[in-house]
Computed example of a mutant assay.
Amino acid sequence: MNRRIHLHIDRLSLQGLDPGNRDRLVAAIERELVSRLSAPGATEGLTSARVDRIDGGRITQGDPGSAIGARIGEAISGGSRR
Rank of each mutant, 00 (worst) to 15 (best):
I72A: 08
A28R: 05
A67T: 06
D18R: 08
L7M: 10
A49H: 10
R4D: 11
L46E: 06
G65N: 06
A42Y: 09
I76H: 07
E74Y: 04
G41P: 12
E44N: 12
G69V: 00
G20K: 04
N2P: 15
M1Q: 08
I54Q: 10
R81K: 10
L12F: 11
L33M: 14
D63H: 04
R50M: 12
G20H: 07
A28S: 14
G79D: 04
R4Q: 11
S38H: 07
R31H: 13
S77T: 05
G20M: 06
T43Y: 03
R31G: 09
N21R: 12
D55W: 07
L37N: 08
S38V: 03
G56M: 05
P19G: 03
H8G: 11
T60M: 08
I68T: 14
S77G: 14
S80Q: 10
T43I: 12
L17S: 06
E44H: 07
R4W: 04
G56I: 12
G69P: 09
R22W: 07
I29P: 11
L25C: 07
S38E: 13
I76A: 02
A75E: 06
I5K: 05
A27Q: 12
R11I: 02
L33T: 00
A70N: 04
G57D: 07
H8A: 10
R22G: 13
A27H: 04
A28F: 02
A49P: 00
A70F: 01
R71W: 00
L46S: 01
G20L: 03
D55P: 05
D10V: 01
I76N: 08
I59N: 03
L33C: 11
A49N: 10
G78H: 09
L12W: 00
E32R: 15
A70K: 08
M1G: 15
I54M: 02
E44Q: 13
I54H: 06
D63K: 10
S77F: 00
G57E: 08
I59F: 09
R82D: 14
L25S: 09
L25P: 11
N21A: 14
G62F: 02
I5V: 15
A70S: 12
G78I: 01
D10F: 02
H8V: 13
V34R: 15
H6M: 11
Q15Y: 09
L33Y: 05
I72G: 09
D52W: 03
L12Q: 02
H6K: 11
D52H: 13
S38I: 00
I9C: 14
P19K: 04
P19I: 03
S38T: 15
S35M: 09
T60K: 06
S35N: 13
I68V: 15
A39I: 06
I68F: 12
T60C: 07
S38G: 04
L17T: 11
L17K: 10
R36N: 13
L7Q: 05
P19R: 05
G73D: 13
L46A: 03
S35F: 05
G41H: 09
L37E: 06
R36K: 08
S13V: 14
